[in-house]
Simulated assay, not measured.
Amino acid sequence: MFVRIVKMSFNEIHIDEFLRNFHLNKERIRNFEGCRFLELYRDKTNSNIFFTYSYWNTEADLNAYRQSELFKNVWSKTKPLFNDKPEAWSVDKVVTLD
C-alpha cells in the first residue's frame, strides 16, 4: 500500500471555495482506479491548513491519478487559492493498531 499525505494552506477568504471544489470531486477521486481510501483533515489550531490522506494500491496508481484530467481539473482550481506552498509526503504504513 502507498500512502500520500498532502498539506495545503489557504487564504481564509478561499476556504469555502476550496471545500466546495473538494466536495464536488471527492467521490471521483476516491473512486479513481487504485485509490483505496481518502480523508480530508483540518488543523485545529490553524483553520486555514488542510491535509489530505489517501491510500493507493501502488505508486503507479497515484502517478496515473496525478496525470489524469480529473487531477488537472481539481488542481487548477485549488492551486490559485493557496497562501503557501503545498507540501506532500509519500509514506509507507509501518504499524496499524485497531
Results as ranks from 00 to 15, higher is better:
N63M: 06
S47N: 15
T78V: 15
H23I: 12
S54E: 08
N48M: 06
D84I: 02
F82E: 00
K44H: 12
L70I: 14
N46P: 00
W56V: 07
R30E: 00
V94G: 01
W56T: 03
R4T: 07
Y53T: 12
S9E: 03
R42W: 14
V3R: 06
M1R: 09
N73S: 11
F22L: 14
V95I: 14
T78R: 04
L97A: 12
H14R: 03
E17H: 08
R4W: 11
R20D: 07
V6K: 11
R36Q: 08
V6W: 04
R30D: 01
W89G: 12
L97Q: 06
F37Q: 05
D43P: 06
S68D: 09
N48K: 07
I49P: 04
E33Y: 05
L38V: 10
F37H: 13
E59C: 00
R28M: 12
A88P: 01
L62R: 03
I29E: 02
R42Y: 13
R66Y: 07
R20G: 06
E17L: 15
L40V: 08
D98S: 10
L19Y: 10
V91I: 14
I29G: 04
P80W: 13
I49S: 03
R36L: 12
T78W: 13
E69W: 05
E33Q: 11
Y53W: 15
E59L: 05
F18E: 04
N31E: 09
S47L: 14
N31P: 05
R28A: 13
